[in-house]
Every structure is written in structure tokens, then in C-alpha cells.
């Protein structure tokens, strides 16, 4: 369940891969937060193109990063989210962070 993090000009992209559940979200959270602390980006994009499964633990992961970015005065954007993941996200109203929905 690796996450690939790239950053340029204050914009950080974290490309998530594999299955996101309670077990894997703990490691993802650590990796992403470490990267945010290291380079304080203005904008964080979570890219879901490589995610094959996600349950509500993924919603918790997004909510936590949203809070983290807001506290720093930054922005969070969700991109390339497959339809079945949008379904879980919409239960929490988090689909409003989707690219093109704002």
C-alpha cells in the first residue's frame, strides 16, 4: 500500500495505491503527515487513481488531512476518484472536495 508523494512550487500530490482500510490508513496517514510537516505545502492533492478498494477508514483519512491543511491555511483537493469511492465519500459530504465540484 505505498503512497507516492511529489511536490513542486508549494503543491504536493500524494498518489495513493492499493486498498485503503483501517489497517493501511494508519501508515498512509503517517507518510502524508510527515511530508506535510517537512515541506508545508499550500495545497495538497490526494490522487485516488491507483486505489482499488476503500471503506470509511479512507473517509477518516481524508477528513484528518482536510483538518490538517485547513489549520495551516492550505487547501485539499481530491482527484481521479473512481465512482465507487465517491459513493463512500458522499456519505460524509466529502465529495465536495472533488476536483471540478467546487
Amino acid at each position: 500500500m505505498p503512497v507516492y508523494i511529489t511536490e513542486s512550487g508549494g503543491k504536493m500530490t500524494a498518489r495513493l495505491t492499493g486498498e485503503i482500510d483501517h489497517h493501511t490508513s494508519r501508515w498512509l496517514r503517517m507518510d502524508i503527515d510527515t511530508a506535510i510537516n517537512d515541506s508545508s505545502p499550500k495545497e495538497l492533492r490526494l490522487d485516488f487513481s491507483g486505489v482499488s478498494f476503500m471503506d470509511s477508514s479512507g473517509v477518516g483519512l481524508v477528513m484528518g488531512r482536510y483538518k490538517n491543511m485547513c489549520e495551516r491555511g492550505g487547501k485539499l483537493e481530491l482527484v481521479n476518484m473512481p465512482e465507487y469511492i465517491q459513493k463512500v465519500m458522499s456519505l460524509a459530504g466529502m465529495d465536495r472536495l472533488l476536483d471540478g465540484k467546487r
Binding site: 490508513s25 496517514r29 471503506d55 470509511s56 477508514s57 473517509v59 477518516g60 483519512l61 477528513m63 484528518g64 459513493k87 463512500v88 456519505l91 460524509a92
Partner: peptide, 15 residues
């Protein structure tokens, strides 16, 4: 604090 979204049962009910 553990970033549980509180959506477990909602997901079960909708899915």
C-alpha cells in the same frame, strides 16, 4: 482522535 469517521453503519446500511 483515531480519525474514525463514524460512518461504519451508514456504509453498511447504504451498501
Amino acid at each position: 482522535d483515531e480519525e474514525r469517521s463514524g460512518l461504519g453503519f451508514s456504509v453498511m446500511e447504504s451498501f
